[in-house]
Design a protein around this nucleic acid. Structure first.
Lengths: 147, 147
DNA sequence: GAAATAAATGGAATTATTCTAATCTACTCC
DNA sequence: GGAGTAGATTAGAATAATTCCATTTATTTC
């Protein structure tokens, strides 16, 4: 098993980094790979555990550094829910998040252009936003109910 | 100077607490007063400093406890922006937040029913949200520019 | 008004995040 | 093509945010 990151994603990473004069290090590649692999909105700590299986000596600080770089490159988004550790998400299309009170699971809620521009119009004159974060807290569809 | 909390707000607090079998302690009253006094979205730490002027021995843990109670009573809302400490806001009407990259200031952006229900419709069938958090990150109107 | 019960408090511990000094890498100039 | 150098990367140590839990304080019941 090599550094397991499919070619298209590897290229996307390489180009995004290059345009900012940064390098596709083993650590960055691996962190990006792990986030793409299981799209469950992991925390930095979750990611640390997963990356360690491949790079056993990597520290949590490096995970944060890599994540910050990926966020800067707009390959990864941060999700801030409750008073809880930040989560990370590789979905690059505009979307909101739904956080289930029962299961703790986080779902992506897609936002098309129409929705997005509707939200943008909430802003009073003179304000311009480059980042919009929308999150819902509530209950998702019932999971299997025991009779 | 007594515990400085105008009568209507004092009553609102008292009733909200009572309906949950909780008591309007000096600490809770003071924390609520401080949040209402300067509506600048303070962090727990900011609030601690301000409350200390009146109750010098109060601990930060108690501030968090009081805030959690106020949030439960729906008198105060939590605001989660970036990877930063949680902020608190006594605006009980539906609203979003705008966070200015330049000044760090946080503004309330009001959401009328029409806007609110538009957002609610983003949710797929089966999902119901009791809390919606919407925040913008960007630049606010120019502040005074030096020639 | 005392005992039983429930709530509130804050010091200590935990957890999330950032800082900084040391290391490494890739490019330039000879 | 190799040494020097500037800039990037790394991770241990420090800081900052939040929570836990044993103790204290308040309320209710009898």
């Amino acid at each position: 098993m090599k550094t397991s990151l499919p070619e298209p994603e590897r290229n996307r990473l390489k180009h995004a980094l290059k345009s900012r004069n940064l390098r596709p290090t083993r650590q960055r590649t691996c962190v990006y790979g792990v986030i793409l692999e299981k799209r469950d909105h992991p925390t930095a700590d979750d990611i640390h555990l997963r990356v360690r299986e491949k790079l056993p000596s990597i520290s949590l600080a490096t995970i944060y550094n890599c994540l910050d770089t990926l966020v800067e490159c707009e390959l990864v988004k941060q999700v801030h829910l409750d008073r809880a550790p930040t989560r990370f998400c590789p979905n690059r299309t505009p979307h909101a998040h739904f956080h289930c009170r029962d299961t703790g699971q986080v779902y992506d809620v897609s936002l098309d252009d129409k929705r997005l521009s509707a939200i943008e119009q909430f802003l009073p004159d003179g304000f311009t936003a480059d980042t919009i974060e929308l999150s819902f807290l509530g209950r998702g569809p019932e999971t299997i109910t025991v009779s």
